[in-house]
Design a binder for these strands. Structure first.
Lengths: 256, 256
DNA sequence: CGTGCGCGTCCCGCTGACCGGTACGGTGAT
DNA sequence: ATCACCGTACCGGTCAGCGGGACGCGCACG
C-alpha cells in the first residue's frame, strides 16, 4: 500500500489527509472532490481546508483549493533532498550537456523511487516521471539501482510482494529481477528497456554513501528507443554518480 | 514583516509554526531549539512535533527533528510552481548551456522573490540564493523585474517601506529604484550590480502573462564581476523569457 | 565527586477547540 | 418547475489538546 492511513481522529491527520489528496497532476480540487477523496464529512473538510488556507498551505481560487507556494517553499527546505539536490546539480548539468537527454536524480522511499530532480530540454522524451513524483522501483533503472544497494531485508520485502505490470516489458518475475540486481552490483549500472513506458529506455548508476555499500540516491539518463542507446552512456553516468558520491562523502550531511 | 504570526491557538497553527521554524540552512533542530524559536511551551512543542513525525512531515533523528521527504514531495505538487518549473526547465537549460553561469527562475511573494529553480555548474559563482529560498525584491535583478511589472499598489507599498541594505551597492533610495523600474519596463531587462552580494552581477527578464502587462515570473543569469558582463547576455535572457512567456500563454495554467 | 544546568520525556486534570449533523441559498442540468 | 449538487453557515456536546510540573539523564563545571 502506497499511502498508509494517517490518523483521521486528529486535526493534523485530517489536514495532511487533505494535503495528500492532491496528486501530482491535479491543479485544483473542489471542496466536493476533497470530500470524496478523503472521506471526511463535508463540514469538517470545509473547516480544515479553510484553516489550511489561513495557514498558507492551501490557496483558495474561484474554482477550489490548490497547494500553495508556501508549501513549495517548505518542501524545498527538507534537508536531505535539498542538500542532495544542491550537490548534485552540477553533475546533472554536465550529464545533460553531454547527452542532451532527460536526466533524473532519485531516492528510494519504500517500494517507490521519488524523483528529486528531472532536467531536460525541449526535445525530451516525454516520460511519466515528474520531479517530486513516484514510480515503482522494479520498473525503473534508478529503482533497480537503489534496490540492488538496499538492505537485504528491504530488498526481500519488495521482491516478495507483487510486481505491478506497467508495460509488456515490465519485469514481474521476482527471480528474473533478482538476477538483474546481482548484475547491477557487478556492473555498477542498471538498465531499463521500456519497462515503465513503451518507447523509453534508461540507464542509471548509484550515488554511494561513505562506506560504498549503501546507496543514497541514483542518477539516470533516459531517452527514446531509436536514437538512444543506454549502453553508450555507461561511462558518463557512472562517472557522474561517482563524482557525486565522493563529493557527498566529503561533506557529510546524510546521517540517520 | 516577513512571516506573519500564524494562529497559536489552533493545532494547525502550532504545527505550521514549528515547520516554518526551519530555515533554509538548518539541517536539524533540537526540541529545545524549536521551543526557543516558536515560543511554544516545551510540552506542547514536544507533542506536536511528535504528531508531525507520525504524519511524516518531520523526521526524527538522534540529533533532533528535520523536515521530511514527505514534505518535499508535497511541496513539489504545488501546482503553480511546479507547472512553471516544468515548462521553464528547457529554457533554463538552454540558457545555462550558452552561458555556463548560474541561472535562476523566480516569482514574487510580497516583498521577496522566491526562487523556484537554480541551476549551475561546478564553477558557479556562489550566491546567497537558494532554490526555495527568498531574497528582497529591491536588491536582485529578478526582483526588480517582477516589481516593475507588478500592480502599482503593490509596487508603491514596497517602494514606501524601508529598503534593507545588503551591500554598499544596494539601492536604498526609493526614487532611484523607481527610476530603474521605469528603465526596466522600457528595456525589458533588469540589471543588478553587487547589490545583493559583493562580487556578483546579474541580469533578468520577465516571463509575461497573456496580456503582456503582468509578470508571472522572471529568469536571470548571475555571474562574478570580472569574467561576467551582464550586458553581454541581454538578448539571450530576453529570448528565454519570451519563449517561456508564449509557451505559458498557450497552456494556460496560471489562473488564480 | 557532587552539583547544576539543559536536555528530552512523561503525567494528568481542566477546558475550549474541534466536531459534524443539519439547514440554507445559489446554480446548472433535466 | 424540479432536482441534484454545490459551497457556506450555525451551534451545542465532548473529547483532543493543552501545558504546568516533575523526572531521569548526560555533561560541564568547580
Amino acid at each position: 500500500m502506497p499511502h498508509q492511513p494517517a490518523d483521521l481522529d486528529t486535526v493534523l491527520g485530517k489536514a495532511v489527509t487533505i494535503l495528500r489528496a492532491f496528486t501530482v497532476d491535479d491543479q485544483v480540487l473542489s471542496l466536493a472532490e476533497l470530500v470524496r477523496r478523503t472521506g471526511l464529512p463535508k463540514a469538517t473538510a470545509h473547516r480544515v481546508a479553510g484553516d489550511l488556507v489561513t495557514n498558507r498551505l492551501l490557496d483558495r481560487t474561484n474554482l477550489g483549493y490548490r497547494l500553495s507556494g508556501g508549501l513549495f517553499e517548505l518542501g524545498m527546505r527538507a534537508s536531505v533532498e535539498r542538500s542532495l539536490l544542491e550537490l548534485a546539480m552540477p553533475f546533472l548539468q554536465d550529464l545533460y550537456e553531454r547527452t542532451h537527454e532527460t536526466v533524473h536524480l532519485g531516492v528510494r522511499e519504500g517500494h517507490d523511487v521519488v524523483y528529486v530532480a528531472k532536467i531536460g530540454g525541449h526535445r525530451q522524451a516525454k516520460s511519466p516521471s515528474r520531479a517530486g513524483g513516484r514510480m515503482p522501483v522494479h520498473c525503473t533503472a534508478i529503482g533497480k539501482v537503489l534496490l540492488a544497494y538496499a538492505d537485504p531485508e528491504a530488498q526481500q520485502e519488495i521482491l516478495s510482494s507483487p510486481l505491478e505490470r506497467r508495460t509488456p516489458h515490465t519485469i514481474v518475475a521476482p527471480g528474473l529481477l533478482e538476477r538483474q540486481l546481482a548484475a547491477v552490483l557487478e556492473n555498477g549500472v542498471a538498465f531499463e528497456r521500456e519497462e515503465s513506458a513503451v518507447g523509453l529506455q534508461c540507464i542509471a548508476a548509484p550515488v554511494l554513501a561513505e562506506g560504498g555499500d549503501k546507496a543514497l540516491a541514483a542518477i539516470s539518463v533516459t531517452g527514446p528507443v531509436g536514437r538512444f542507446r543506454p549502453e553508450a552512456h555507461v561511462t558518463l553516468v557512472r562517472a557522474a554518480a561517482q563524482g557525486l558520491s565522493s563529493l557527498a562523502s566529503r561533506r557529510r550531511s546524510l546521517s540517520n
